[in-house]
Simulated scan of single mutants.
Amino acid sequence: MRKPTVRSVMTTDVITTTPRTPFTHAAGLMVRHGVSALPVVDGSGTLVGVLSEADLLAKEVHRGEPTSVLDSWLRRHSRHRARARTVGGAMTPRPATVDADSDVSAAAELLSRSGHRRLFVVDERGRLIGVLARRDLLRPFLRTDAELVTELEREVIRRTLWADMSGVRVFARDGVVTLSGRVDGRCAAELAIELVKAVPGVVDVQDELEFDRDEWREGVR
């Protein structure tokens, strides 16, 4: 069974900016397009940073704030970035990236573990080719139940399982999949359940499968 990749769910129509773009122009782009961050690319399309809402708000945070010799390095650095006139001075360098051919599950784990709201997708040369946001990972759940059943029948029941699964019926309602019918052995039934659970867009699986042989009780694995 083919695992979905980042390429299959990422957004490719990406609004970008450059290090030399004036601060106000970048802010306007974010407001007009309703995005919370802009990837920053150089003339070759290579990703060099990201400009987020937090980077823009730093100007307001430090506006009129007096400078003190007791300020920490981080505070001085933040204040310096807040004085930036262009994107290059305000952006955050070295944003989190991911390969387009990475498994969606691995990318989702990275997003969850890191706390990032998005990952930028780059090619082998570091050029930006897309963005994977948390909302992109929800796309598989937008499929209809009929579309989900079709994929499960094609990718799991017919192509993946070696056993005779002609007696298996697949039903889905609101993403909850029910497998019913009869198979030869318990191992085939359990494998079918686990494979269906692994398909993106499946909310849960209801096991109503019956089997003729219980290999575990017979000592056959």
Rank of each mutant, 00 (worst) to 15 (best):
M1E: 04
P4R: 12
T5R: 15
T5G: 10
T11E: 03
T11D: 04
I15M: 11
T18H: 10
P19F: 11
P19M: 07
P22M: 11
H25Q: 11
H25L: 08
A27N: 01
R32V: 09
H33Y: 15
S36T: 13
L38H: 01
L38K: 04
P39M: 07
P39N: 04
V40S: 09
S44I: 00
G45F: 11
G45E: 05
T46H: 15
T46K: 15
T46C: 12
L47Y: 14
V48T: 15
E53S: 06
D55V: 06
L57I: 06
A58Q: 13
E60D: 03
H62M: 07
H62Y: 13
R63N: 03
R63D: 06
G64E: 03
E65T: 13
T67N: 04
S68D: 10
S68I: 07
V69P: 06
S72F: 09
W73R: 11
L74T: 08
L74I: 05
H77L: 06
S78E: 13
A82I: 02
R85P: 03
T86W: 02
G89S: 14
T92V: 09
P95H: 03
A96K: 14
A96C: 13
T97W: 12
D99G: 07
S102L: 07
S102P: 01
V104Y: 06
A106P: 02
L110V: 08
L111P: 09
S114M: 02
S114N: 02
S114P: 05
H116W: 09
R118T: 00
L119P: 03
D123A: 03
E124G: 07
E124V: 10
G130C: 08
V131T: 14
A133H: 12
A133E: 14
A133N: 11
L137M: 07
F141H: 10
L142N: 11
T144A: 07
T144K: 10
T144M: 07
T144L: 11
V149G: 06
E151D: 14
V156L: 05
R159F: 01
T160M: 06
T160D: 14
A163S: 15
A163R: 11
M165F: 08
S166P: 04
R169H: 12
F171I: 05
A172C: 08
A172F: 01
A172M: 02
A172E: 00
L179Q: 05
S180K: 02
G181I: 08
G181Y: 03
V183D: 05
D184C: 08
R186M: 04
R186L: 08
A188Q: 00
A188I: 02
A189E: 06
A189Y: 07
E190Y: 00
I193H: 02
P200D: 11
G201A: 07
G201Y: 04
V202H: 02
V205Y: 04
D207G: 07
L209V: 10
F211D: 00
R213G: 00
R213K: 05
R217M: 07
E218N: 02
G219T: 09
G219S: 10
V220C: 13
